[in-house]
Amino acid sequence: MIRFSNVNKNYGSFQALVDINADVARSEVVVVCGPSGSGKSTLIRTVNRLEEIQSGSILFDGQDVHAKMRSKELNHLRSRIGFVFQSFNLFPHLSALENVALSPVTVNGVKREVAREKALQLLDRVGLAAKAGSYPGQLSGGQQQRVAIARALAMEPPAMLFDEPTSALDPEMVGEVLAVMKALAADGMTMMCVTHEMGFAREVADRVWFMDGGRILEEADPESFFSRPQHPRAQRFLSDLRH
């Protein structure tokens, strides 16, 4: 579904991504973890071209994301990749329902009533049907993030990207968001998730990628990674986590 081939990215003289070669298969859940500044967020943002790359290619569902293309095609491609941000980024001037229903109407040309109906169902799916008329300012962090997930799902993307979705939440709300993500994974969604939630990785991930210094240092299934990390940096990272 997502294929990174020799991806390199730099900010001026700073190499943010170095020779990334990896795959996310359809319906697979990949968790990307690592220390701060390792390039995890940068990597996930290159998938829908919120960040540019200097060399290599990223294929999403067979399409080269960073090829030269018209903005209309890029917009269409982006609408097929769901993205959930660390800081939610809900639109504060719209209610939760309007947040979810806006993009299908204006980007995909869905009829308003149909979109609103679907939005209500999605909000119900994340457990927030009662808050459909509320504005983001009235919602807690966990609720806002769930609305953000519903908003991304409204575009019916074949894959979802999560950039530290629970990092800005206090521990009580982390659980409700993770529950939504687990349900999504169980439904067979292709997911790529940057997170520090190791419990989530253990339970749901099919594979874990460990990154540091812009490289993927280790790729393994969660069981192997957490009990027998191979790379010394990964071993250090996991032992630090346990303290």
Binding site: L50, F83, L90, V107
Partner: peptide, 9 residues
């Protein structure tokens, strides 16, 4: 970012 990620021009 959020708007572009959803596919808005």
């Amino acid at each position: 970012d959020a708007a572009r990620a959803l596919g808005h021009s």
